[in-house]
């Protein structure tokens, strides 16, 4: 049986990217400012992580205009939601495995 750590996805596993997918798993979409503020990131840091997630096909970034004001919306793709669920599942499996080992001692 594969050890749960082998199921961790390097793209998703990173702390900030996991946080981004956690927010997006609860919402249809979130804007750049909301993500930046809720995860206490800088603009540059958030952009870099979004590029990684977008490159992996896990989020979709849409730029819109509200009046003359540009706005960037981010949503999780189907693959992104699946990857997030798999990551959380792998983390839980890892904990269960450790708990099982502990109780067996």
């Amino acid at each position: 049986m594969t050890h749960p750590t082998n199921q961790l996805d390097d793209v998703v596993h990173q702390r900030v990217r996991l946080g981004l997918l956690a927010v997006l798993s609860e919402a249809r979409r979130a804007d750049f400012a909301y993500l930046r503020d809720s995860l206490e990131l800088t603009d540059g840091n958030l952009s870099r992580h979004l590029q990684v997630l977008e490159g992996a096909g896990y989020v979709k970034v849409t730029k819109t205009f509200e009046g003359k004001r540009p706005r960037t919306w981010v949503s999780a793709t189907k693959n992104g939601r699946a990857a997030f669920a798999a990551e959380v599942g792998a983390l839980r499996a890892l904990l269960d495995r450790v708990d099982g080992t502990d109780s067996g001692d």
Partner: peptide
């Protein structure tokens, strides 16, 4: 991966999701 880190990560993910829901 250390199981303490896994527990902490899950806790943090839960907090972020709860805040978004709230």
């Amino acid at each position: 991966m250390d199981h303490h880190l896994a527990a902490e990560t899950l806790q943090r993910v839960g907090d972020v999701r709860r805040r978004a829901r709230s």
